[in-house]
Nucleic acid binder design. Structure first.
Length: 476
DNA sequence: TGAAATGTTGGGGCG
DNA sequence: ACGCCCCAACATTTC
């Protein structure tokens, strides 16, 4: 019998329970990946780049076992029906999605095929916990992170990680589209040369995890806030595309925590971040329009501004606030942005420029290699103040102070805003306060070689606080 | 996973 | 010696 394995955001062979299950029931496995931009949001540009390289890695890995990955572009349902008929498929295996629209689509397919006596297996595995079963004591779903984290971390029990199946077998003759024909890589212009810091695919993901445990975990609790250091795990794109199993990440970090004294603090801080990912999906599950609708309805009244030139200055890293500009340029160049700086630039867009968080969310969606519907929405709503357990609206980052605190020597700014490189530390996070002779000595002419601040911090802060009054609940 | 405004305290300069 | 004031340095409150 022939079995279809439908690859989605699970582009790996190791610890892939669904693939392992499929492999045990068939000697004719057809792995398929379908590029379909109609079910959920179309992929952003950075994600398309990543996907190209991830699929390349997967294709090569499967090829070593004599397996061809079948690539198709178009309407998923039509393609699956066509493949089922063409190859006389008896069962379909795939991971269950936790994006509401995609899950509905999968379940509709499952019913369709069931009517034709073809079983479509939808396995869990993308998350550590099932969003539908996690409830607080009063039977409602959690809306505050800390109690969620406390509860959920007790639910996760270790399981045996599954080895890479090494006896995959394929008898059918596969006709696939070529990956190149999908044109996932940018050509004119090719903006991707800064993406060379990344290596997609599950082997690279394993190396990144290993490297993080050996070098990053110990000081993670402090260094994860330091954009001038390589303190974060950088696992997010691998987790998003399922190139690494979240179950593996959780267990390996847990093991390291127990085995090595001194890792507990770092390990706990990191596991907490993994649970933020769970929490994001959990919220999306219970609030399916999370990515476009304020979680807290009172924010529907917020008087957002629609200033296109401000939006463009933010996107291009030309706001006149060095830490913001450094972040936006890092994002554009590498498809990545340090988490602390994500918060700073997001706070700046929503609170200094008063631009709707959806604009920022869309920009991140297009530019991040780890763009993820649940995490991206949750992060933006958290910063904007409209989300669940969000930062209070009055928490407005002072970009200068944030820079001084988390990039104390200005190394991060100098890397990404080279025109400021010769400024002394004292002014690196606030060039507009530097005396004229110091600016001249550093080769800077504000307004020309580097912009003046597009808004004044003090005034912007006061305006934001006033604007937020509009969406405070009326009956206090 | 703030920052600014406001309040309090205590050491030291000074008349 | 004493009180007064100044003002860091912290602490608390407020947005």
């Amino acid at each position: 019998m022939t079995v279809l394995y439908w690859f989605q955001n699970d582009l790996r062979l190791y610890d892939n329970p669904v693939l392992s299950a499929a492999a045990t029931v068939t000697d004719d496995l057809i792995p398929v990946f379908i590029l379909d931009d109609t079910i959920t949001r179309p992929l952003g540009g950075a994600q398309r780049w990543w996907l190209h390289h991830s699929l390349t890695a997967l294709i090569n890995k499967l090829k070593k076992q004599g397996i061809t990955l079948l690539l198709r572009k178009g309407n998923t349902q039509q393609i699956l029906i066509e493949l089922v008929q063409k190859y006389n498929v008896t069962a379909i295996y795939c991971h269950r999605s936790y994006e509401p629209a995609m899950l509905q689509y999968q379940q509709a397919l499952q019913r369709y095929f069931a009517a034709q006596e073809i079983i479509m297996h939808l396995f869990k595995g993308y998350l550590l916990t099932e969003p539908s079963i996690v409830k607080n004591k009063s039977g409602n779903y959690f809306k505050v992170f800390t109690p969620y984290w406390k509860f959920v971390s007790t639910l996760i029990t270790p399981t045996q990680l599954l080895p890479t199946p090494n006896k995959l077998s394929q008898r059918s003759k596969i006709v696939s589209e070529s990956l190149a024909s999908w044109q996932l890589l940018p050509t004119h212009p090719d903006w991707s040369h800064g993406f060379a810091i990344w290596q997609a695919g599950e082997d690279a993901g394993q190396q990144v995890l290993q490297h993080f445990i050996e070098h990053g975990l110990q000081n993670y609790a402090e260094d994860r806030d330091r954009p001038d250091r390589l303190g974060t795990s950088r696992l997010s794109p691998y987790l998003h595309f399922g190139e690494i199993s979240v179950r593996q990440v959780w267990q390996v970090i847990k093991q390291a925590e127990i085995a090595v004294p001194g890792l507990q603090k770092g390990a706990q801080a990191f596991l907490r971040q993994l649970i933020w990912r769970e929490f994001s999906y959990y919220l999306l599950w219970h609030f399916p329009l999370f990515y476009q609708k304020n979680f807290r309805a009172e924010f529907d009244k917020f008087p957002w501004l629609n200033n296109q030139s401000h939006l463009r200055a933010w996107q291009q890293g030309l706001t006149g606030y060095p830490i913001v500009d450094a972040g936006m340029r890092e994002l554009w160049a590498t498809g990545y942005l340090h988490n602390r700086v994500r918060m700073i630039v997001a706070s700046f867009l929503t609170k200094h420029l008063l631009i709707h968080w959806c604009e920022g969310e869309k920009w991140f969606w297009d530019t991040l290699v780890d763009a993820d519907l649940a995490n991206n929405s949750a992060g933006w709503q958290w910063v904007a103040g409209s989300g669940a357990d969000a930062a209070p609206y009055f928490r407005i980052f002072n970009p200068t102070l944030q820079g001084e605190k988390f990039d104390p020597n200005g190394e991060y700014v100098r890397k990404w805003v080279p025109e400021l490189a010769n400024l002394p530390n004292k002014y690196i996070h606030d060039p507009s306060q530097a005396p004229r002779d110091i600016l001249t000595a550093a080769g800077i002419e504000l307004g020309h070689s580097y912009p003046l601040p597009i808004v004044n911090h003090k005034i912007a802060r006061e305006t934001a606080l006033k604007s937020y009054q509009a969406c405070r609940k009326t009956n206090k």
